[in-house]
Design a protein around this nucleic acid. Structure first.
Lengths: 349, 349
DNA sequence: CGAGCGATTGTAAGCGTTTACAATTTTGCC
DNA sequence: GGCAAAATTGTAAACGCTTACAATCGCTCG
């Protein structure tokens, strides 16, 4: 069935008794190919185990057969989940997945987005995961000829799927407020250098809104960038405790940050909800175990969904229907790290 | 500096006043290029912002500029860490990283290894992470023309870096035995379908050896495949409790499995070390927090190290020095989930 | 029955590299 | 200074595909 030497389109042409050109068209399901020709080509290709050379295809103006996933980091739980889910969709669609981690590093980020032509040369499309792009970058990407889709980047000129981050953060924060907390800190998912994780900004907005609905304002000292790692949460919390003292409650941008915060608390002989209420976002597999209150979101679904949208776009490049936006549901899960405020010192700050 | 239209090697040739061929050779640091030519080419290329087209290069017999990372799954902590570390090395070396997750799925696994020629067409090299290959597959890979390196796959005809898994498991198990436990279960990292994670086999061996050194034998009912996820550990433990009852101590193939086991225990109103001692391998960031005893291993280092070896091989393809093997250190960390056996029922099963 | 038209198929020219091999220049030596 | 050998550079043919554009086929219609 499969010859030792890789079969070329030429071989398929010969075996099927058609020209290379017709074979090429048949293989790509282009119009103007008769039923009969289609069948013959399919049979010949099957018999030879033919697979088009992505390099040759790309060189001649066709597709590369691969899609890039660009993520701020590949290790955070959310990204690992989304990447694997997307990779599965891509693989099943016959695309290779090239992983581009920005590593929370501005320089790497620049290197990637500065030369989209180079990227275009290597992949057909890009799946962006929570990358915080500025307007110029968005325009550049949209006009790059790359198919684009994203997770967690609403308001962008391509298909996006995510959750309503603003709402999720609002829900988490409101939960805290309704428990009588007023002295709230937020451990944001942003890196020190700014940039990097887009959802964090929206979540910050939700946090602010909840506060202002309760006639509170967010105090700059109480929003701390923590990256999106356990370690980041841990050091951010340590810093918070040292420089400002314990707030009454804490909203963590994601569960891993919350884990880190819980660790830092323990290191100081403190705990949640005893000394501070803590809530995160994600519903990480460990959250149940740690009793962490959180806002659950479907992570793999988001990655797979966006990946599917991207694949479809790649399949029908001609029709440029308007970009779609999809929000998946979230759910507040109240567990043991949040409880009613028992502090008596009511002096607001 | 960078022109709107991508510069070709032709442009560089014209600008440098040399032939395409010389430019090509200079760019790839081939021998037989004069100093002067080299300089001129470098300057012209720089001025034009020239980057070779990977597709064209590949088609003409050169390199693809990308490397595949093949892992049993991309979500497990170990793999996510190793992948990111390797991706960083590859990116800095100018290679794209294509991620191939086997998804713990035999069919996907077959699809990948059955057609190495197809893989060869898309990447220059392969970094294998703990993939359990059989002898034929190893031979095929070694003879595929692909550069290969691996993590956690000792005894293989290419560069490998890992830890001494047998020893790590032995150390963990011995720790349990020395605490007076004799009724040991192991939650193995293997998938139900067998295959997939190579280190698990070596760890099983270490487990066995420790047992036999204490004149014990491993009971088949007490080795349970758990995959390498929290969820896998949880259900494996649940099953163990239901079908066989609690052992005196438990060796988990990795920390995530141990986390899952701890969760299952809690669901049954049990806990470690009260009802059973538990030890894992990894030293996951959460392990400290949960007080999990474990054997720490440097994960990112392994990925980066192997990636570097692979890059070097790619840089000097001619010299075929013998494959090297590297073992990184591990360290037993005794925390709170292991303690002296207090059971009194000494009837060995 | 032949012109005309749409549908299908074929021809051939790239796409941007690499690489035998040929041509040229430089170097070493007598 | 001149010649062979070595070092450098150039020429041109792939590599395997896509795609204008030309050619052919099968019909419909007057």
């Amino acid at each position: 069935m499969v010859s030792a030497q890789r079969a070329t389109i030429q071989d398929v042409a010969v075996l099927s008794g058609l020209s290379i050109c017709t074979v090429s068209r048949a293989l790509r399901n282009l119009p103007n190919v008769s039923e009969k020709a289609h069948r013959k080509v399919a049979e010949a290709a099957g018999k030879l185990g033919y697979r088009a050379s992505p390099a040759a295809a790309r060189l001649a103006g066709g597709s590369t057969g691969s899609i890039a996933i660009i993520a701020p980091t590949a290790t955070a739980w959310f990204f690992a989940q989304a990447v694997e889910a997307a990779e599965e969709v891509f693989a099943d669609g016959g695309h290779d997945t090239v992983l581009l981690s920005l590593r929370n590093n501005a320089e790497v980020r620049t290197r990637v987005f500065a030369d989209l032509a180079a990227l275009r040369q290597r992949v057909d499309g890009v799946l962006l995961l929570n990358v915080d792009l500025d307007a110029d970058e968005i325009d550049a990407l949209a006009g790059s000829g790359l198919a684009v889709a994203s997770v967690g980047m609403s308001g962008v000129p391509w298909d996006n799927v995510g959750i309503d981050d603003e709402h999720a953060a609002w829900a988490a924060t409101s939960h805290l407020l309704e428990l009588g907390h007023w002295d709230l800190a937020v451990l944001s998912g942003r890196e020190l250098g700014g940039h990097s994780v887009r959802t964090s900004n929206n979540r910050l907005d939700g946090f602010s809104r909840a506060l202002s609905e309760h006639h509170l304002t967010v105090h700059p000292d109480l929003v701390i960038n923590a990256g999106s790692s356990i370690e980041g949460g841990r050091s951010a919390m340590t810093e918070l405790i040292a420089h400002r003292g314990l707030p009454s409650a804490l909203f963590a941008d994601c569960d891993e940050i919350a884990f880190g915060a819980l660790m830092a608390l323990r290191e100081h002989g403190l705990g949640a909800p005893k000394d501070v209420s803590v809530i995160g976002i994600d519903d990480h597999p460990m959250s149940w175990f740690l009793g962490l209150s959180t806002v659950a979101q479907p992570v793999a679904d988001q990655g797979a969904f966006a990946a599917n949208l991207l694949c479809e776009r790649l399949l029908n490049p001609e029709q440029d229907h308007a970009p779609t936006s999809h929000f998946l549901d979230t759910k507040l899960i109240e567990r043991k790290t949040t409880r009613r405020n028992r502090r008596t010192d009511k002096n607001h700050d």
